[in-house]
Amino acid sequence: MRAVLRRAGSGLIVLWAAATAAYLALLAAPGDTVDSIIGDGADTPLIRSQIIQEWGLDRPAVVQYLDYLWRAAHGDLGRSYLLQRPVRDVIGEQLTPTLELAVAAAALGVLIALVLAVTTRRAWARRTSSTTELVLVSTPPFLIGIVLLSVFSFRFGWFPVSGDRGVAALILPAVTLALPIAGVLTQVLRDGLDRALSEPFAVTARSRGLAENAVLIRHALRHALLPAVTLTGWLFGVLLGGAVIVEQVFGRPGLGQVTLAAVNSKDMPVVLAVVVLSAFVYVLINTLADVVYLAIDPRLRRS
């Protein structure tokens, strides 16, 4: 019970720190809020005073910050400067498509990595796979997306180009996002497998007469999974960053596009909401990772 409370407490602190850091960063960025609301439109003192009044920008920065925290704590994320709608609506309707994309990509990436790491044990297969992984990791997702689209959508017409329209439209974006993830994860898993197989317990297992595949999957893979699980935080970062590009290329709705537009136009309420949301998911994922450690490794359960 105490452990759970401690976790929740530290989670809250992370959220607050993320919100505050984002607030300060946006405050320090060049150009003030009024400028970003005006955009490249007309700019007169009358326009300025009306904007300042509408958004309450004449209050001291500290008051605005506290007001923001207070309202955020009550679930009110404010209104988007750019889109003129409540931030909660903007984020709410874009969350599901991004979540679908992220979960599909993560699942696919992990699946590919597991299969590749276990099946490519022979030297030649290993070399081929390893080279491919490096190429995938080093290729910008933008390029992967365009190539996949050109071949499978424009040329063969197997998949629709865009939108959030069922499973068919999810496949290409998910693959685009999954390939770099699979690349890194495979490398980590293979390295972990190599190390586990050289441990004494592998020799013991073999001496018990276990088949090589059983040693690999039942014993070594478990050990190899630990470092891979540690990477879930990184995985989340890749998914969020990749979503920005993938959504743009495939014309998919989602948080990535919202974030990009908000950052470009300095739409503070939306940027802050995305940061806080990301921090929340981050905390959630790291907590989950801790639980998964326990499930994978019995030694950790005892301590």
Partner: peptide, 18 residues
């Protein structure tokens, strides 16, 4: 009206009849 921000994707969607 579909929002396709990437020029090459718009062109590809047109040439493939989507």
């Amino acid at each position: 009206y579909r929002f396709l921000k990437e020029p090459s994707v718009r062109v590809g969607a047109l040439t493939s009849g989507q």
